[in-house]
Design a protein around this nucleic acid. Sequence first.
DNA 1: CCCGTTTTTTAGGTATGCCTAAACATCGGA
DNA 2: TCCGATGTTTAGGCATACCTAAAAAACGGG
Lengths: 159, 159
Amino acid sequence: MKRKTIEDYVELVYDLQKRGKRVHTNDIASALNIKPASVTEIFQKLDSEGYINYEKYSGVTLTSRGRNLAIRTKKKHQALKEFLILLGVDKQVAEKDACEMEHILDPTTMDIIIKFVEMINRCEITPFWLERFKRFVESGRLEECPPELVMLCQKVQKN
Amino acid sequence: MKRKTIEDYVELVYDLQKRGKRVHTNDIASALNIKPASVTEIFQKLDSEGYINYEKYSGVTLTSRGRNLAIRTKKKHQALKEFLILLGVDKQVAEKDACEMEHILDPTTMDIIIKFVEMINRCEITPFWLERFKRFVESGRLEECPPELVMLCQKVQKN
DNA sequence: CCCGTTTTTTAGGTATGCCTAAACATCGGA
DNA sequence: TCCGATGTTTAGGCATACCTAAAAAACGGG
């Protein structure tokens, strides 16, 4: 990950806060591979913007504003990761890309992706087209769609 | 768009170069809503990194290295935009999001997305599941999958 | 071909997000 | 309780990507 955003920090504070109490500069610094001194500055900024309660030398807790942002961000992250994995992206890569995408996508795009994941998850079986797609990604060769399936789809489409 | 990357500039030079000859600071500046003075700096940097040939006061042309990067970037951009539009994202939004995504996605993810677009484009008809998905996005209600379709898919899957 | 207009460059400035080194607080064992 | 180890903050620095104002070059009509 390159440039970190407010959302990244808030999300991380949220995660670290769960298993324990207040979150300290060192916790963030070691998780993100930056220096504690930088985290202090970040804490000051996040505090001034109302996302955390910062007390010198004793770590931070999230405000409700911060918690909301963290939860929203985590949901986006989760949906994006699931989405990519569904398409056949490697889990590690999906994690990384989701982390970047969560900051840049338009809310309407995000919404569509969330719905996509939901649709797939609600299927009883992994859809045929998705299996076929993954085989395509694997092999580079796109197999023909079974003609009876094409015909049935056309028929269903008409109604 | 916020921070612009090398790829953005190279891509833009490529586009502007096509209809005309050398590209000037003002062309870029007005296209990206930044000041000509900033473009001069960017030209100097791109020149030092071998993407463009920069001649003071007379604009730039792309090197082959620059042209390659531009073309690669444009392909990514195009595939991403198509991908989003396929899923039902508004064209304007798709344009914007594609522009951000093209810089951050892992090559393997990009490859999968390109294949996805290819798969859909090779279908004789818009796939049933995709139509169904778009109706879901529109209405918020996910209609049941026709049972005969589910059954056929299961059957096909077995072979 | 000269001079005013337009375009481009230079020089210097701002904000941001990170850094290091050093000062400072806190914590826990002797 | 004192002190050294550990953790945190401050101060100052660097790089980046933009900016403005002013100098310099190029352009083009009279």
